[in-house]
Design a binder for these strands. Structure first.
Lengths: 329, 329
DNA sequence: ATAATTGTTGTAATCGGTTACTTCGCTGGA
DNA sequence: TCCAGCGAAGTAACCGATTACAACAATTAT
């Protein structure tokens, strides 16, 4: 393998000059610069990253710990993070914590070992509860999930407001007995639950909320029980894409048609929500933008470690489709 | 930060002994081992990876370059790879090449810079055509995409056979005018096309194949044209999940009901294929298994660099649903 | 003319581990 | 008793960059 000293010899300069040229530092004459670049070309020199990282104590790598890479929401987030990171010549280490707090701890440790420049994290509830940015030797930006009182940079949806608007939309369309199925294991589920409760309570309507693990299966089972109970709810609302999928499957099984017999709505504008007739009303999240904002916030934080903590809140967009059409009297 | 020499001092031994204990090497007495482990505990010592990598010339990292992380197929692959890799205390660098040959080259270069132990790659057609494992200083395992004559370790579906079986299934169900919409930009699309052609040709049926870029949009447009032509095809088949989604959307738009007016089938058992009434017949890929086999093959290859090149072919499973029900006479 | 300043370049220490090689103490056979 | 052989532990070279500091030449100020 060709090393920096080979390049120096070939160019007839010192290793320091080569290093300076490679790093784009000032203090090198144009003529030296050219000779070095030629030598680099000629020898196809590539600096050894391990050596560079050891000496410079920087890795130019950021860690991205997502809750579940299979969830299209996080897939899109990771795409955004990668895109922006690579534009800034930073590398990304993607880790899938699988909604498992232990794995999360494991990966955060791993990030420490890797000496990353920073981390983007969508924490589970236990990790979020114990989260203090000062516990980590690198800056952390939370994405998607964040408590009201977490003192950390974060990029999130306006979960409470979005759920409030979605619920209000159903109420305005004439629905009253609205059941809310939400994931209890994540901060988003709880916040969306809060928005639902507020919307119902301010109108004096009865709360009918059911917390479940955020999986298709759990949601399907829960919905199955709800729709076999009497009186039948007027509408079902799911707190995220996976749960909404479970609800939809449950309605399919029981042959209930929506919106005639029961309305349906939820979070996440996934491709299939448009396909299932007559389309499902959802809150669309600006997913790519969320990821982009997170990595940009992190890069800022890395550049200015002492800047004040900031939180970016993005608005969910209500997309009305047939599943919440005005209720026939 | 605590270093190996601090641990050595604390334990009253040399740095070499500490290093040996950390690496689990033999030639350390039990009493020394215990003292070192205690000191490691007491000081919460974590070896510096950059230093270790520089000296040992190993990174214990594998690169995973997927074509499009948004595609659920690759999402699942990456999950499998991560799971197995972490079990073997290896790290994974995930890169999203976005079906762009240039990005692919870029990432392969990056892998070289990172000095990874090996790479798992799902190549685009141009990269596959030029692929020689000897061009890279690390072992490469191809996944999902591979030519008949590529001399490299690979894990793939039996694409030709699966397409043949899927097409035959439709023919047996009474369909004759079967149109095949496939992605031309990938090896899988072409191989599945080949299976379709064989199935049709051996029965003397007319080939009606249309190549498109593998996107939902392109497939929808292509299908739109097909179903507005006369005579109307008896059936549409899509060569992967994205294309199948496009076909389904096109049928929705034109209000054609399946299977009464036109049958539908394709590849990839995505959640929505079960939901869209009356369910879409698909070839299900053992996605997680494909990824798992790929990383296991790579680990083997890393351990035994000279073992003979091997190819793992997995069988796709035909899942019959309503969209290909027996044709009414 | 001399000193101070500026701009380039080179030398060598350094980052924190791994590992080849040396040393030491002990046991067993000649 | 002496030496070969072996296991355990230590010393120091080494991995390949970055960068502090020194050295020097060319220019400008005094």
């Amino acid at each position: 393998m060709t090393q920096i000293k080979d390049v120096a010899k070939q160019a007839g300069v010192s290793v320091a000059s080569v290093s300076r040229v490679m790093a784009g530092h000032a203090g090198v004459s144009e003529v030296t610069r050219q000779r070095v670049l030629e030598a680099v070309q000629a020898l196809d020199y590539r600096p050894d990253l391990a050596a560079r990282r050891l000496r410079s104590r920087r890795t130019d790598t950021i860690g991205l710990i997502v809750s579940d890479i299979r969830n299209p929401f996080f897939t899109e987030i990771s795409r955004a993070v990668e895109d922006v990171a690579y534009q800034h010549r930073m590398r990304v280490m993607l880790c899938n914590a699988d909604e498992d707090p232990e794995k999360e701890v494991l990966y955060l440790d791993l990030m420490r070992d890797e000496n990353v420049s920073g981390v983007i994290l969508s924490p589970t509830l236990p990790t979020l509860a114990r989260f203090h940015s000062s516990d980590y030797p690198f800056p952390v930006v939370l994405v998607d999930r964040c408590d009201r009182d977490t003192a950390a940079d974060a990029v999130v949806l306006d979960n409470v407001d979005s759920a409030y608007r979605l619920t209000s939309h159903l109420i305005e369309r004439g629905y009253r007995g609205i059941a809310f199925i939400y994931g209890t294991a994540s901060a988003t589920g709880r916040q969306r639950h809060e928005g639902y409760v507020t919307a119902m309570a301010t109108r004096g309507l009865e709360i009918q909320a059911k917390g479940v693990p955020a999986t298709v299966e759990a949601a399907r089972v829960a919905a199955g029980e709800l729709v076999r109970a009497r009186p039948l709810p007027d509408a079902l609302v799911g707190s995220n894409g996976l749960i909404l999928l479970g609800l939809t499957e449950a309605l399919r099984e029981t042959k209930l048609r929506f919106p005639e017999q029961i309305a349906l709505a939820g979070f996440d504008d996934l491709p299939w929500t448009r396909l299932v007739e007559p389309g499902i009303t959802v809150i669309a999240q600006p997913t790519y933008d969320l990821g982009q904002a997170a990595i940009e916030l992190l890069l800022q934080r890395i550049a200015h470690p002492t800047q004040s903590v900031r939180r970016v809140v993005m608005r969910g967009e209500l997309i009305e489709r047939g599943s919440s059409a005005k209720r026939s009297p």
